[in-house]
């Protein structure tokens, strides 16, 4: 059952912004929605979450149309923002209540997530001592005093309040420093272990690759590459060879017609045609008794697949 996205399309006037996108998540995990700027990722997410009317298609959650009535959804939108005039605690409580979390349960959850996301100082009054040693309570910061990263963490806290079954994260790591990125990654890992369904959209391929099992790469409103990430990678074969020797081996590499991507002090990043070519190079080096420090044959990274596919498509379009 899980999530089923069938044939989503959207046009603005004559311009097609999402062109018949379909995918499904039969079991919990992370589904990555990737694409160039303006490829239609956010519009797709908005249609999935029923914020935008669909021209065609439907989105089902356990066989029923997906909405916040049929599924407990947590959403971190691409556009970050908070009510600037209201206190942070008031707005978090408001969002919690709208999601059906009430009273003490709500307070407990806010306390828990504010601790997890290191937001306590922005939500709770701090106690300080003045020159005479008297304890004074200092009001927490107002929303307009928060950095973008902290505003993003507040929004993430809001998304987590209802303990959602389906978590939609649109560019979750953009604008976060490395420390906060790690905090958020930990939470995502925890949610995966807890059996949550997560849709993630991002430009940071390395971060997405770490979590996702299935992907759709969108380009010019269409799904360009789609499926299980491991299967996709297998399809391209093991073509990345990382080689480090104790002497210059360029002649051996050139002899086999292998493409050198980068070279630095006897350390090479190579693009081979497959296992056979890599094995041939290894055989030649061993026969020549050249000491090998590193020989690592691997698949293409998600970043490389993305660039390769999108690049090819762009060329085709031109």
């Amino acid at each position: 059952m899980g999530l089923e996205v069938k044939d989503l399309s959207k046009k603005y006037g004559e311009k097609t912004v999402v062109d018949h996108i379909s995918f499904s998540m039969e079991k919990p995990g992370v589904y990555a929605l990737l694409g160039t700027n303006g490829a239609g990722k956010t519009t797709s997410i908005r249609m999935i979450l029923d914020m935008l009317d669909k021209d065609t298609g439907e989105v089902l959650w356990n066989g029923k149309p997906l909405s916040f009535d049929t599924c407990n959804i947590g959403y971190l939108a691409e556009e970050r923002g908070l009510y600037q005039k209201y206190s942070l605690m008031d707005q978090i409580m408001y969002f919690g209540r709208l999601r059906g979390v009430k009273g003490d349960e709500l307070k407990t959850k806010i306390k828990y997530w504010s601790g997890r996301l290191k937001l306590d100082e922005y939500l709770y009054p701090a106690e300080t001592k003045d020159a005479r040693g008297r304890v004074k309570k200092v009001k927490p910061k107002s929303p307009d005093q928060l950095s973008k990263g902290n505003q993003q963490k507040i929004q993430f806290l809001i998304a987590m309040l209802s303990d959602p079954e389906l978590l939609v994260l649109d560019e979750p790591f953009s604008g976060l420093d490395p420390v906060n990125t790690d905090i958020l990654k930990d939470v995502v890992r925890e949610q995966i272990s807890a059996g949550k369904y997560i849709i993630m959209s991002s430009h940071q391929m390395a971060a997405v690759e770490e979590f996702c099992t299935d992907i759709t790469i969108m380009c010019r409103s269409k799904a360009l590459v789609q499926g299980n990430l491991n299967e996709i990678k297998k399809g391209y074969g093991r073509v990345n060879l990382s080689l480090k020797c104790e002497q210059d081996v360029s002649s051996y590499i050139n002899e086999l017609g292998i493409q050198i991507l980068s070279e630095k002090e006897n350390e090479y990043e190579l693009r081979v045609t497959g296992d056979q070519q890599a094995n041939a190079l290894l055989w030649n080096l061993v026969n020549a008794t050249i000491p090998i420090i590193k020989f690592d044959l691997s698949e293409l990274s998600l970043h490389e697949i993305f660039v390769k596919e999108v690049g090819a498509n762009e060329e085709e379009q031109q």
Binding site: R46, L49, M51, F68, I73, G74, Y75, A77, E79, R80, G81, L82, Y83, Q84, F95, L98, R99, Q155, I158, A159
Partner: peptide, 11 residues
């Protein structure tokens, strides 16, 4: 306040 999308998953 760019909050509207966050609200629309609740109301």
């Amino acid at each position: 306040s760019k909050l509207v999308e966050n609200l629309l998953v609740s109301v």
